[in-house]
Computed example of a mutant assay.
Amino acid sequence: MKVKAIADILDGEVDGDPEREIKDIAPVDEVDENTIAVLRGEEDWRKIKKKAGAVVIPHNVVPDRRSSYSFIRVKNAEVAFVRLVELFYPREVPQPSISPMAYLGDVKLGKDVYIGAYTWIGDAVEIGDRTVVYPFVYIAGGAKIGANTVIYPGVVIYPRVTIGSNVVIHSGTIIGSPGFGYVRCEDGWLHIPQVGGVVIEDDVHIGANVTIDSGTLRPTRIGKGVKIDNLVQIAHNVKIGENTVIAAQTGIAGSSELGNWVVLGGQVGITDHVKLGDGVMVAAQSGVTKSAPPHTKLFGYPAREYNKARRTYAILFELPQIARKVKELEKRLKE
């Protein structure tokens, strides 16, 4: 593909030879005369070891005029990188078909749907146009799935689950399993029925081995545009706002609510009934036990405002030295 054609796709401007042929995208330190790389900043120039076919740069980066590269100037280098990967490595989509080895109950299918072998779909399920359901998926009766959604092998979808359009669900994920709710009684623990189901809105991406529990009477809700990494647990009655990002091994306890554009680092724990406002950011391995207003940054266990927590930890690491000084002072006073 020629540099000019790539620039048109990226909404970029060419500086150099627009007719140069590009065959692939490469990391900055592996780019050669047949490939294209994306530079995030001026420091990336040092990483280029060979003559590059083309280099994508942000508008604010000054090109290295000593080189003979073709440049493509773009507004957002990160977005350009995504588009380039999609351009050279388009996602393989199976041809619309229904495997004769799949079981389908009384279902309503849209146009151009793919259903893989050994998938089981119960009665009254609705699946939208161009949705892909790979082999070995279980979809309980009554589930509703929108258009252009992709469900990878090994996903389990319980009853009373609604999934929007343009959703991606990776292998091993379980949606709608009964929430962890029990009442103590004389004979032990009585499970509270969880019949609220789950609602997953449009444009949500869910990683592998994620569990999203059914709500008790109202649905557990995952808002539009949410991105969930692998190995995340979302308990019953949780509400997650739009465009929130959740990194791996995070656990969110029951009835907690996250606003829009919240960011949770890896291995974050959130206790039940916590409310985090829009734009809250929680650092990795933090334990959130209290609600936080919008745009707060949290860190540590128990999680506190980021700058306060850093100062606390800085003092904490000095405690052994402080303890020695206190003992020396006590010894002097006794003398």
Rank of each mutant, 00 (worst) to 15 (best):
G154P: 05
V210C: 08
V125P: 06
F299T: 04
Y138M: 02
V183A: 15
K275E: 14
S165T: 12
I157H: 00
E318G: 01
F299S: 06
S255R: 05
M281T: 12
L84D: 14
V125G: 04
R66I: 06
T173M: 11
A37F: 01
L298G: 01
R160V: 10
K275G: 03
G116W: 14
R332F: 02
A54M: 12
V245Y: 14
A80D: 09
F317P: 08
N260E: 15
T289S: 12
G207S: 13
M101E: 11
R65V: 08
V28H: 04
I72Q: 02
S256C: 05
L87F: 13
H170F: 01
K2A: 01
G41T: 05
I175C: 09
Q267N: 09
N148H: 14
G251C: 09
E78I: 13
I127G: 02
M1F: 11
H170R: 09
W189T: 11
H205Y: 06
L319Q: 10
A208G: 09
G110Q: 13
P58L: 01
Y69I: 06
I200A: 08
I9N: 06
I157Y: 00
Y134Q: 03
I192V: 15
K327G: 02
S214Y: 03
W189H: 14
Y118L: 10
K47F: 10
S67D: 07
V326W: 05
Y118I: 01
D8Q: 09
G105K: 13
V274M: 11
G196Y: 13
G225K: 03
G300E: 04
I36T: 05
A303M: 01
K2Q: 10
Y103C: 04
K75D: 11
D187P: 03
V274R: 11
P153V: 01
P293D: 05
L39S: 09
V282Y: 00
S255E: 05
A292W: 12
I6G: 05
V93S: 04
G128P: 08
F299P: 03
V61R: 06
V74S: 13
T173S: 15
T216Q: 11
I115M: 12
G207W: 13
Q194I: 10
F136L: 15
K49C: 04
P219R: 11
T119H: 00
A37S: 10
C185F: 08
H170L: 02
F81R: 14
P320L: 01
I25V: 15
A253H: 00
I222Y: 02
K2W: 02
E318N: 06
G41Y: 04
P90F: 05
V232R: 01
R218M: 06
Y313R: 07
I115A: 08
A26L: 00
D32V: 01
G259I: 08
S165K: 10
G172M: 07
K331Q: 15
A208P: 10
M101D: 07
R304W: 06
R310I: 09
V74C: 13
T35H: 14
V326I: 15
V198G: 06
Q267Y: 09
F136R: 11
W45I: 02
I174V: 15
Y118K: 03
V282E: 00
N209F: 13
